[in-house]
Amino acid sequence: MTIVWTVDAEKPRPEDLREAASLLAAGQLVAFPTETVYGLGANALSSAAIDRLYQAKGRPRANPLIVHVADLESAKTICSVWPDTAERLARAFWPGPLTLVLPHCGAIPSGVTAGGETVAIRVPGHPVALELLRLAGVPVAAPSANPSGGISPTLGEHVLEGLDGKIAGLVEAGPCSRGVESTVIDLSGTHPVLLRPGPLSPEEIAQVLGSDPEALLPSADKRKQGPEKSPGRMGRHYAPKAQVVCVQSEAEARACCAVWQQQGKRHAWLALQPGPGTILLPATPAEAMRSIYKVLHKIDKDLIGFLVVQLPNAEGRWLALRDRLLRASLND
């Protein structure tokens, strides 16, 4: 049975988190809230703990983990180099939804890095996560707290739906404010590269770096070189049980719904613009990201078998939502 500790999201008391922190440090698995999604935490210095994490999630070993630390100085101890680009981005966005990929110092087990020479690292922007990390006193590897490939959890109840009884504990502190996983920037090469879109747009990153947002996008010849450096890039992710079909236009969405209706299949239509029978997402990217996983969890609960999604444009903060929906529609 998974232990649940309910804490105040804004002002968590250390005494409410000490047991969870002790379990984490000892190598047990504890789920906890961040500003992005709930993470499944494991002591990043313990190979045994990392093994438990992969087993609990059913996660492919080739999919690396993000290491969470309490502050910038702790991040530097895990990396073998800390370039000026890392310093500028960390000072601009940490604590917050930004993950930096850098060469690691060798102390991190290969299970965390998928056998690669880099580590993905961030300082989360959530009071509960920060206090838990401070009390645990170890870097914590924490992918989303759900079975691999499924919908990420933004509420404690989502965590228990997939992992109750498989993990030692859950720190429950209400909904996550951002709602999708962090933006990941690779700083291990000759220039910064966006590996995973997230709440921070390419334009926001580029403004701090004084560069062109287009220069952050990976070139086709560099996307598949060596081990993966970031999670969220391997096959079907973030997916409900329903078959997801992504389209651009309202006409295409209507056509899908008409076919499913004729076949007697239970279906839904997810859109940013109101229409007959649509499930409407909020009109701003921040609100849409905050809502998307909650909506997909509700679609699962309603036993919807087929879902058509009108994609947002591939620009700015909409890029993250588009990425999650496209990956949810993949077949592998």
Rank of each mutant, 00 (worst) to 15 (best):
W318D: 03
E19T: 15
S188P: 13
P197H: 04
K224R: 13
C257E: 11
P197G: 05
P95Q: 06
L296D: 01
L307N: 02
I3W: 13
Q243L: 06
A258R: 14
P64A: 02
L281R: 06
P60D: 12
T34R: 01
R317Y: 01
K301N: 01
S291Y: 11
S201L: 07
L303M: 04
T2S: 13
F32A: 00
D302W: 06
G174M: 03
R134V: 10
V308M: 06
V7C: 09
A283W: 13
K166M: 05
L195A: 08
W94I: 12
L187D: 02
I78R: 11
G189T: 02
L200W: 00
P153L: 09
G27F: 00
D221P: 12
K11R: 15
L132G: 06
R317I: 05
L65P: 08
P95V: 12
E35D: 09
C257M: 14
D221W: 15
E19G: 06
L187P: 08
P64H: 07
E228K: 10
D71W: 14
G137Y: 09
L17F: 15
G179A: 05
A31D: 00
S182V: 12
H297W: 06
I121A: 02
L24Y: 04
K11L: 11
L40W: 03
A129R: 08
P95D: 09
T278I: 14
A288W: 05
R13M: 09
F306C: 13
S148L: 10
A220I: 13
G174A: 05
L272A: 10
K265L: 12
L155Y: 01
R223C: 05
E287T: 15
A75K: 12
K265H: 15
I78F: 08
D8G: 13
T183K: 03
I167R: 09
R266T: 05
V180E: 00
L330Y: 01
V81W: 02
G149H: 03
G305R: 08
R290Q: 14
L330F: 00
V128S: 02
G275P: 06
A20I: 13
R223E: 01
L325R: 00
G150S: 12
A136Y: 06
T118C: 08
R322S: 00
T154I: 07
I151G: 02
M234R: 02
R91S: 02
L160T: 04
K294R: 14
R233F: 01
S188Y: 10
A70I: 05
T284W: 08
L45S: 11
H191Q: 10
I66V: 09
A62S: 11
G125L: 09
P175G: 10
I299N: 03
A286L: 15
A120E: 04
L132A: 04
A44G: 13
L272V: 03
E131A: 12
A114R: 11
P240R: 06
P95I: 14
R13H: 10
A70F: 06
D302T: 05
G39K: 05
A258G: 14
E181L: 08
L102W: 14
L200I: 15
Q243G: 07
G156Q: 04
W82K: 09
I78V: 14
A145K: 07
E157Q: 12
A268H: 02
V159L: 04
A62H: 15
S249A: 11
L200F: 07
T284K: 13
G174H: 07
P213T: 09
C257N: 11
E19P: 01
T34L: 06
E117Y: 07
A90V: 08
